[in-house]
Write a protein that binds this DNA or RNA. Structure first.
Lengths: 191, 191
DNA sequence: TGCAAAAACTAATAACATTAGTTATATTTA
DNA sequence: TAAATATAACTAATGTTATTAGTTTTTGCA
């Protein structure tokens, strides 16, 4: 049941990730991925639903890997410390997986249930990190949105080379997170 | 010196903006823009340096328009109030110019001096808005990065439909900005 | 050993960007 | 007013890509 050289999804995602990391997401085409795998591009349709399907798979893979990295960063931590760890892990993921991180953004279809689920997992993780703050439910949801905006905004601008000035980036990130955390304590009377 | 129907840059940018706003930046092609203008796509090379050139022009136009909108929002304001106005104007711009805002991101070349200049103008404006806070120079630069991350992150996630939950978006934005401002006051002892 | 399914293949089409070379037109100039 | 020139349109052609249809090959199982 497994004919020819039989490229599998794993190999496809690896090849696409490698191309995305080194040349950017625009260079991830069925042609370039097929070439790297040593097959012809129509053969990819046996594994993936066209270019959009490949992008979806890549986005999904990226979100799962990101979730895993974030989980790993916050185990054994709580409160301010956990939020700081979350932010640094997020940005670090974007830095060391530039292509995959790009893939998680330009998702072709926001309504895809698997993508939605993967996104929700990250939101839930963030909610749990905030549990120790003793925020009301709705407050916590707004704060989750705030943290996502912060992390994604920083990672995205950094990746596109938008921070031009010669000023330490890690220092900027630390201050950004600390400032927002200080704001939470000031705005909502919580631990 | 002005032969034929003579499409000009203004018309090209208008057409491209319209396509980007209604169908997204991926749909902005030389073919689609030419079609809307009633000319053949090779004719566009008389005005623009290929597809990348068109994207550059569009990014530049978007940044200038964004800068203008931000300027307009902060005149006559100072301190916290000015920062709030800046954030709301930024997000409002992204909302009502979805295509143009996308164009300001996927800039083909970060090194383009005109794009750099346009970006610097926005950074400078933000610096001036922060003047009233009495921050040290380096502190102010970190805060500018923070605000950019905040604003862009929120606008970007909102635009991609990433905020799934049924929770008021303007409320989230207000709280995000207010929380960060409160953080500034807590972290740096300033007015 | 043969059969069926899976995954490769080739061939063909359509959309796009881009280059080269040509034509038409509007302004300028003689 | 008429010719010259510059500008911006055009057509034709090439190469890349995604995608579909139909074919062949190979592998695992009966």
């Amino acid at each position: 049941m497994t004919p020819r050289n039989s490229v599998d999804m794993r190999a496809i995602l690896d090849a696409a990730t490698e191309i995305a990391d080194s040349n950017g997401m625009e260079e991830v085409t069925l042609a370039s991925v097929a070439k790297k795998l040593g097959i012809r591009s129509p053969s990819l349709y046996n594994h993936v639903d066209g270019l959009d399907g490949l992008r979806r798979q890549l986005a999904l893979h990226g979100l799962e890997k990101l979730h895993h990295a974030l989980m790993n960063a916050v185990v054994g931590r709580a409160g301010d410390d956990a939020v700081r760890a979350l932010g640094k892990a997020y940005v670090e993921f974007a830095r060391s997986n530039t292509g995959l991180y790009q893939a998680t953004l330009r998702a072709p279809d926001v309504e895809d249930p698997r993508l939605k689920q993967a996104g929700d997992n990250i939101v839930h993780l963030t909610m749990r990190v905030l549990e120790g703050f003793g925020l009301k439910d709705e407050e916590a949801l707004h704060v989750v949105r705030g943290l996502r905006s912060l992390f994604h905004g920083f990672a995205s601008i950094e990746q596109s080379g938008g921070f031009g000035l010669p000023l330490d980036l890690d220092e900027s990130l630390s201050r950004l997170i600390d400032t927002y955390i200080a704001g939470i304590h000031a705005m909502y009377d919580c631990k």
